[in-house]
Design a protein around this nucleic acid. Structure first.
Lengths: 208, 208
DNA sequence: AGATTGTCGTGATTATTGTCACATAATTAT
DNA sequence: ATAATTATGTGACAATAATCACGACAATCT
C-alpha cells in the first residue's frame, strides 16, 4: 500500500488511540474516533479494512488491541531511533519537541559542528559531523532528520545515504536528488504557512 | 479552487522561481521546473492553466512575471504578518527560521508568559498573552502560528478567533474544534517522522 | 427463542486528481 | 516564404481516493 493519505490517517488514528489509552478508555468506535479528528467514520472503517484491521461486530474496537495493530501497520512496533543532523534552532526544537517523548520516535544523537549535550529529556549528545560514520558503525540507525542549511543539505544527504540511512525527513527548502531506494519526506514550513494564507484570501471564502 | 495539492504545488513552483530569480535566470520552461522538483511538466502546465497563468508559446515563461502571477494566486502579493503564540523551543525555532526571511511570510510579534525580545533578524518582541487583544487592535493581523502545549491549544485558538484571526497553523497534536469560516493547517511533526518509518519498512520496498 | 438494535465490513458508486495526446502558436532554418 | 522545430494549453481519458448503501453479525431486550 503506497498511498500517502492512508498512512497519514493511520498515524492520526494512532495519535487519538494513544490519548484514549492515557485516559484509561478501553473501548472505542469508528464513530467516536471520527468525532475526535473529523474524518468520516466510514472512511475510518474503510482504512482499517484496507489494512486488515478487524473490530468486533457491534462491539467496536478494543483500544489497546487497535493501537497495537496500528503500530504494526505503521512499522512502529519496534525501536525506531533517528539521528538528527544539524543542531541549529530547528534541530534544537525538534530534539526537545514534546510530542516525541510520548510517541514511538526517538532521537538518539545529534550531529553539528557545535558539539555539546542537549538538555532535553532524555539528554541527547551532540557530536561533530566527522563522527557520523563511526557512530553508525556502532548504532544501526536507519532514519535521519535533516535540519541543516540549504547549501549543505544535498552533501549531507549523500553522506548519510552512503552510510546506509534510507529514511529521511528534510526540513531544508531545496529538493534533494534522491536514489530510488531511499525515502525523503520534505517538510517545508514556509509552504505550510503559505497554505494558510491561500485559504484565508477573501476570494476563497467559499466553504473551506 | 479548493484543492490542497494544487496550492501546495503552486507554492513549490514559487519556491523554485525565487531561486531562479536569485541566480539571475530570466526565462524558464515547464520542463526545467519539473527537473527541479520532480513534478511532471504536464502537471505543471495543467496547474498553470487551471489558475489562468499563461506562458509564451514556444518561449517558455518569463521568470519574474511567472513569480508575480504565482504570488498573486497564492495571495502573497501583499504584506502578510503573522503573530506567533507560544515561545517555547518550537516557537523560537520558527521565529528564527531562516526560510521566512527570504520569503513573503513575516512574524511580527510573539506572545508567551515569558516575555522578552527574540534575537532573530529582525528582532521580534515577545509580549504577555494578556496583551494579545490590545495588540490586535493596533495591528490588523489575520494569521497566527499556534506553537503552544496541547492543553492550552483550544483555548488559545478560541481567544484568537474571537479577536478576528481566521488563518492558523497549528503545531499541537490535538485536533482543534474550528468554526466554518476559519482555516487551520495542522502540522504534526511526529506524524511526519512516522511517515518516513512507514515508507522504509522492509515490507514496503516496492517503488516508492 | 425470536425480534430488535447498533456497529462493523465491503462492494458499488461517485468525485477528485493526474496523465496523455494532440492542436496551436512562436521561433528558427533553409 | 515555407517547412521544421519546440513549447505551451487543454479536452479526453485513466487512475486514485472518498462516500454511500447495505448486508452480516453480535449483543440486548421482551
Amino acid at each position: 500500500m503506497n498511498y500517502k493519505n492512508h498512512v497519514t490517517r493511520l498515524s492520526q488514528y494512532k495519535s487519538v488511540l494513544q490519548r484514549l489509552v492515557k485516559s484509561g478508555i478501553e473501548k472505542t468506535y469508528a464513530e467516536s474516533i471520527s468525532k475526535h479528528i473529523g474524518i468520516p467514520a466510514t472512511q475510518i472503517r474503510k482504512d482499517f479494512s484496507l489494512f486488515g484491521i478487524r473490530g468486533n461486530k457491534r462491539g467496536g474496537y478494543n483500544v489497546l488491541e487497535l493501537l497495537e495493530e496500528l503500530k504494526i501497520n505503521l512499522g512502529l512496533n519496534r525501536d525506531l531511533p533517528f539521528i538528527l543532523i544539524g543542531y541549529g534552532n530547528l534541530g534544537k526544537a525538534l530534539a526537545r519537541y514534546h510530542g516525541f517523548h510520548e510517541g514511538c520516535v526517538r532521537i538518539i544523537a545529534a550531529f553539528d559542528p557545535k558539539v555539546g549535550v542537549l538538555s532535553s529529556i532524555p539528554p541527547i549528545p551532540v557530536y561533530p559531523p566527522a563522527s557520523i560514520s563511526a557512530f553508525l558503525k556502532d548504532n544501526p540507525v536507519k532514519h535521519a532528520v535533516l535540519a541543516v542549511p540549504d547549501d549543505v543539505a544535498q552533501s549531507m544527504f549523500d553522506e548519510l545515504y552512503a552510510e546506509g540511512i534510507r529514511g529521511f525527513i528534510n526540513f531544508s527548502t531545496i529538493a534533494l536528488n534522491v536514489p530510488e531506494d531511499a525515502y525523503v519526506n520534505n517538510v517545508d514550513l514556509e509552504l505550510e504557512l503559505e497554505t494558510v494564507i491561500y485559504y484565508t484570501k477573501e476570494s476563497n471564502n467559499k466553504t473551506k
